[in-house]
Amino acid sequence: MFSSSSSPPWLRTVSLGVGAILASVFAFILFSALAALLRGVEWEFFGAVWSPREEKFGLLPMIYGSLILSFSALALGWVLSLGCCCTLRGLGPRWLAKILLTSLRFMTAIPTVVYGFAAVFLLVPVIRSAFGGSGFSWLAAAVMLALQGVPAMTLTMDGALQSIEEQTSLTAAALGLTPVQHLTWVVLPASKKWLLSSALLGYGRALGDTLLPIMLAGNAPQFAASPLESLRTLTAHIGLTLSTGAGGGERSSLLLAGGLLLVNSMIVSLTARALAGRGPAA
């Protein structure tokens, strides 16, 4: 609107200060992670065994845990979101869409820790009695992560689909398409990019979440092969190990885990920006 020279000086200072603080947060974490990596060559951070007693600090089980948990939660959550979004965009009756929209908006306000708390006493016992074991498992964490991710993904998809629907509705009506046909054959194929970017958003959130994995996944540092086994994510690993006040190799492995999470979230944000930068605005 105005030029930068006309800005009140304090406003400019504040903004550039904010920018500088943000940059230094990134630099600080990345630098610590790098230093830990260099210092801890003999600790084999990318090894497969986590056993502090034997001085083995391999992060691979946690990296594996983070990846499989977030991808499984994403797969489930994304499909649910697509379904919900179609309901909102006219595949379901009006009243259902209205209820669903209100509920989804409300769901964005539910604290993660409340989801976790409810699941510990509701979902985990169900899994325990149905499949045996302790119930604290990949499955429990994935289901809750998927549910928690649905509102954000659905609302993003919905915004994009709505704008494309508005752009094409006259033409579609002129061609004699029913609303269902319009959505299925025109709007959805045209909004592939937005469906992808909502999946990216869901992935970033699922991987970055701490409370659900820490409360529900059982936290055993192992390579879980079935959904009923326990696993530990990078985020849970940071939370668990830091609160025990560990030092040495454990401390260094945490810094590295933080660095990995940060790099991952940066890649996700940059990809999302690149996706949003191209094509029609939504």
């Binding site: 920018g19 947060v25 990134f26 985020t235 940071i238 810094l255 933080g258 979230s265 940066m266 944000s269």
Partner: peptide, 16 residues
């Protein structure tokens, strides 16, 4: 910078 910050997992902010 704001976009990147918005994506940071909160545990990483705690670690910071």
């Amino acid at each position: 910078a704001v976009d990147l910050l918005a994506g940071i997992p909160s545990i990483v902010m705690g670690l910071f």
